[in-house]
Design a protein around this nucleic acid. Structure first.
Lengths: 347, 347
DNA sequence: ATGAAAGCGCTAACAC
DNA sequence: GTGTTAGCGCTTTCAT
C-alpha cells in the first residue's frame, strides 16, 4: 500500500516547511508573498505524488467540515428522495457535500443520527423532524448551529423552516371533491400526531364543515406497511356509503389504490380518489389520479437559501425565517364529476 | 454558546488525567484496573455535562471513521433508494453509518465524491460505478480499501461485486414476449456503454435470434429526461410494425408508458409492454405491467456480506468474490397473449 | 519571503 | 492503578 503522502512528506522532499506548503495549497501563497517559482514547484509536486489532503485533520483544526447533514423520514419515499436529490445538487454547487440518513420515524434513531452528525462536526443540519426530538433540535439552535427544519413543524421549537400550506392544500382538495358532487368523503391518514397530518385533517374537516357534512377519518397506525392494504380494505367494506376517498400521503394512496383494485371498485364512479403528494405514475394509471402536488423543487431551493443565510452568518435576527409554500391541485380523472344517479341515491 | 466539553475539561474537573477518562469512556476501564468508583464518577460526570466525543479527533487518531460511503447513480431512482435504504439498515446494525451520494452518471462528480469519501477516511466503499472511474476504483483496491461494486461491472477492475444476471433476465423477458406470440419486439434502452445495458441488449438479441427474428434497438441519449417521451413518441410512430416494446430500465418505462398513453395505443392489443425493474405502481396501472424484478433485498444483503468480510479482514483470497443474483419475471397483463388477428396482419 | 511552533481532541504505549 | 507523553495531519500566528 502506497502510504498517503502528507504535507510534511512534501515539505521534506522540497526542503521547505510544511507551513509554506499548506499556504500554497490553500491558495494563500500569493497573499503571503511566496516566490512564484516556489509556488509552482509545490503545486507541481503535489500533483505528481497525487496529494490528497486529510480532511479529517483539516476539520479537527478548523472546526469546519463542509458537510451538511440531512435527516429524512425514509429515503425510499419519493418525496424525500427527490428533495434530497435537489438539495444535494444545490449544496454541491455551493461547495458542500450532503450526507443524508433516514430516521424511519424513530426518535431514538433520529437522535442517534443527529448525534452522529454533530460528532462529525457537520456545518449545518436539514431536518424533517420526527416527534420527540424537540429538545435535541432546540439544543442545536441554542448552540448556534445552522438548522433548517422542513416538511413538519416542530411545535415549541423556533427554527428556520420551510413548510407547505397543508391546511389550504387539504381544504382545496376536499373542496374540489365537493365541487365535483362527491358528498361522502373519507380521509385516510396516519395515526400520528405529526403537525402536517393534523393540518391536513383540519383542512378536510373545515371544507366539509362549510356544507355541514360530517367527516369520516380513518387513521392507520404508523409502520406495518404490509397491513395497510388489508386495513383499507376493511374500512372501505365497512363504509359502503362512501363515494370518495382522500389519501393523506403518498404511500397510503398506493395501498389505497391497491385495495380499490382488489375490491373491484370503479374509479371515479364507485369511488372518487384524490391523493396528497403527486407521483409520476398518477398520470399513467387508468383512470389517472388527481393529486395535491408539493413543490419539491421550490422546497429544496428554499431550504438551501435559508441555510446559506445562516452559514454566511448574515442572519442575525432573532425571529427565524419561516417559508410557507403553496401546494398545487392537479386535477385528473379520478375525481371526475359524479354521475347524478348514485349521488342522489346515497343522499 | 455552551462550549463543547472535551475529555480534558472533564479530566481537569475530576482531577484525573485525560488518559484515564478516555479509557473509561471507551469501556476499557475494567481491563486497565481502574477503580470501580472512579469509573462510576467519570461516567456520571460525562452524563451530567452531556459529553459528546469529537469523532473527528478520534478518526484522526485511529484512522477509522465507522462510516461507509455509498455511490449511486441517482438517489431519486427507486431502485437505488431502496437498495440504499436496506443497506443503511444493515450497516446501522453493524455499527456503521452509511453516507450516500449521487454521481448522476458523471465521472467527474463520481471521482470527486470518491475523493471526498477518501479524504474523510471512510472505512469502506459501496459503488455503483459510472464508466470512466476504473482507475480510481482500482487505486482504492490496491490500497486495500474495502470495496464492493454493484449493479454494474467495472471491466478491467477486479473487485468484490454483486450483480444480477442481466443477460438471463433480459433473455427470459424477450422469450416471454415471444411465447405470448409477439413477433416485432423493440428494445428501448440507453445510449451508454454500461455493461449491464449491454448484457440486457445481448439477452434480447439472442432470444430473438433463436427464432431468426431481427432486433430493433432504440437507443436514447443519457440525460435530457424531459425529452424521453418525445423521442419514444417519434420512434413508435416511425415503427408501426412493432407489436411489443421492452423498456430496459425503470425511468425509460415511465417515459414509454406516458408516450403510449399520449399516442392512444392500447396495451397489450396494440402493443405489448415489458419493463426491466419492478415498481409498486406496475400493479396499479390498467393494464398492469409485466416486469423483470431485481431482488433488491438480496442485493443489499449480499453487498453487506461482502463488505463485512473485507472489514473484518477475514478475507485474504486474491480472487475477489462475485455474487450474481437471479432476476424474477413478474407476469402481468401488459404482455397478455396477442390476439391472432393483428399478429397475422403484421407478419 | 519563509520557518518554527503551538495546538485542535483524542488514543495508546509506556512510565511510575 | 493512574499519569505522562507523543503524536495523528493540518492551519495559523509570530518571529526572523
Amino acid at each position: 500500500m502506497k502510504k498517503r503522502v502528507s504535507i510534511h512528506d512534501m515539505a521534506r522532499h522540497l526542503k521547505v516547511s510544511s507551513a509554506t506548503v499548506s499556504l500554497v495549497l490553500n491558495g494563500k501563497g500569493e497573499k503571503n508573498h511566496i516566490r512564484k517559482e516556489l509556488i509552482e514547484s509545490i503545486l507541481n509536486h503535489a500533483r505528481e505524488v497525487d496529494y490528497r489532503p486529510n480532511l479529517v485533520a483539516k476539520s479537527l483544526r478548523t472546526g469546519k467540515s463542509r458537510i451538511i447533514g440531512m435527516l429524512v423520514e425514509g429515503i425510499s419515499n419519493p418525496f424525500f428522495s427527490s428533495i434530497a436529490s435537489f438539495v444535494e445538487h444545490e449544496a454541491y454547487q455551493a461547495g458542500y457535500k450532503l450526507f443524508y440518513s433516514s430516521t424511519e420515524n424513530d426518535p431514538d434513531k433520529a437522535r442517534d443520527l443527529l448525534r452522529a452528525f454533530s460528532e462529525r462536526q457537520v456545518d449545518a443540519y436539514i431536518i424533517a423532524p420526527t416527534a420527540g426530538i424537540e429538545e435535541d433540535v432546540r439544543r442545536l439552535i441554542e448552540n448556534h448551529q445552522p438548522v433548517v427544519v422542513f416538511d413538519r413543524e416542530l411545535k415549541a421549537v423556533s427554527s428556520a423552516s420551510v413548510m407547505i400550506d397543508n391546511y389550504k392544500g387539504s381544504f382545496d382538495a376536499t373542496r374540489h371533491l365537493l365541487d365535483q358532487r362527491f358528498r361522502n368523503i373519507a380521509l385516510v391518514t396516519l395515526e400520528s400526531s405529526q403537525q402536517q397530518m393534523e393540518d391536513r385533517t383540519r383542512g378536510y374537516v373545515d371544507a366539509l364543515g362549510e356544507l355541514k357534512l360530517e367527516p369520516s377519518v380513518f387513521k392507520i397506525p404508523y409502520g406495518a406497511e404490509e397491513d395497510h392494504v388489508d386495513l383499507i380494505n376493511r374500512f372501505l367494506l365497512q363504509h359502503p356509503e362512501l363515494d370518495a376517498v382522500y389519501f393523506a400521503t403518498n404511500y397510503l394512496a398506493l395501498a389505497g389504490l391497491e385495495s380499490i383494485r382488489l375490491l373491484g371498485l370503479q374509479i371515479p364512479n364507485d369511488l372518487g380518489v384524490i391523493a396528497f403528494d403527486d407521483n409520476a405514475f398518477f398520470n399513467l394509471t387508468s383512470p389517472s389520479i388527481t393529486s395535491i402536488a408539493q413543490p419539491v423543487k421550490e422546497i429544496s431551493s428554499a431550504i438551501m437559501q435559508l441555510l446559506r443565510e445562516q452559514l454566511s452568518g448574515e442572519l442575525n435576527r432573532e425571529i427565524p425565517t419561516r417559508i410557507i409554500l403553496p401546494t398545487q391541485l392537479i386535477v385528473r380523472d379520478s375525481s371526475a364529476q359524479k354521475k347524478k344517479k348514485r349521488s342522489v341515491a346515497t343522499q
